[in-house]
Write a protein that binds this DNA or RNA. Structure first.
Length: 315
DNA sequence: ACTAGCCCCTGGGAGC
DNA sequence: TGCTCCCAGGGGCTAG
């Protein structure tokens, strides 16, 4: 699912191709993706307003804040996209679908979720059943939102008020931003009684970390996910701080994690899933040097946590 | 002030 | 083969 490295990859790639292009049109078959502040907007009236705000606007650049992709428009607005679990932004020759896309898919590809790049039809490149929103661009290509579970949120807000916007206003410092170990510790200690796994994933404490990368950084720093924040020794927290930076950078180096539906804007899968040591490794031997543990799965705050009970210490 | 649990959603896997 | 049930989960929200 898109966490910091996936969102970072997306915004970096989009920033290479979108600046200077003009949005010619917007299409959606699922208006519930659109939000105005906290409110989910289902009315056609709002879609009209959304369209008015973005159609005709030139894209200035693309950046990121936490897990949000920010598409800045020259007209003074910013389109904020949160991809949630299965959403991702694609650039290509996507067009709005008329009725069921299945009918138009060549027999050999029916039921296939992803069409290999080499086999994509130049006319419908690529065919993706889960595209629910498309921005047509002046280059002839389009920017499309694909989202199996339809949780992604899109809103448009004046760029000046961006930091005050719902979804951004309460975000903590970026996990890969310039913040020192001292600040890291201070942030975590805002929830002294919290379980470390949950606190790491709390976007108001630190922005950008989700389930996959929190499992991986705890595995690396040998800390049990249920450890109480206030009980973790300073030395262990330092390891965690280092692991956080390393794991997230590695995620970016590998083009993100495509264990779930994530794809880069080009449609290519990331490769970080090949580097997992804990996440979704339940039942497999722990790969830490000399460790004889088996990866276990438990629930922490309603989310699954994967860890090795032998080398990851419970504080 | 907490936290556990529901909700949004749908593909995929397990079980029958 | 085909049906039903359950699970995945970010983050907002509510009930306790």
């Amino acid at each position: 699912m898109p966490e910091l490295p996936e969102v970072h990859t997306t915004s970096t790639e989009l920033n290479k191709v979108l600046p200077g292009l003009v949005i010619h049109d917007v299409w959606t078959d699922y208006q519930s993706h659109l939000y105005e502040g906290k409110k989910q907007i289902k009315s056609k009236k709002y879609f009209k307003q959304f369209k008015k705000d973005v159609v005709g606007a030139k894209i200035k650049n693309v950046s990121r804040r936490g897990k949000n992709v920010l598409i800045h428009l020259a007209a003074g607005n910013t389109v904020v996209v949160h991809m949630k679990m299965t959403g991702h932004l694609l650039v290509g020759r996507y067009t709005k679908r008329a009725g069921s896309s299945q009918a138009k898919i060549p027999e050999a590809w029916r039921g296939q979720k992803w069409i290999p790049v080499s086999e994509r039809s130049p006319l419908r490149d690529p065919i993706n059943r889960f595209i629910h929103l498309v921005f047509s661009l002046s280059s002839g290509k389009s920017l499309a939102l694909s989202d199996v579970r339809k949780f992604a949120k899109i809103s448009v807000t004046p760029t000046k008020e961006l930091e005050k916007t719902e979804g951004l206003i309460r975000l903590g410092p970026d996990a890969l931003g310039k913040f020192s170990f001292k600040q890291f510790k201070e942030r975590l200690c805002q929830k002294p009684n919290g379980k470390i796994k949950q606190v790491l994933m709390d976007q108001e404490i630190i922005a950008g970390i989700g389930n996959i990368y929190s499992d991986e950084m705890l595995w690396r720093s040998s800390i049990h996910p249920l450890s109480k924040v206030s009980k973790i020794p300073n030395k262990e927290l330092q390891k965690l701080y280092q692991a956080m930076k390393q794991v997230l950078k590695k995620g970016i180096d590998f083009g993100g994690d495509s264990d779930s539906d994530y794809r880069q804007p080009s449609g290519l899968a990331g490769r970080f899933q090949e580097k997992h040591r804990a996440y979704r490794k339940t039942g497999q031997p722990c790969e830490k040097n000399g460790c004889s543990g088996i990866i276990k799965r438990i629930k922490v705050g309603g989310r699954s946590a994967h860890f090795c009970a032998i080398h990851q210490k419970l504080f």
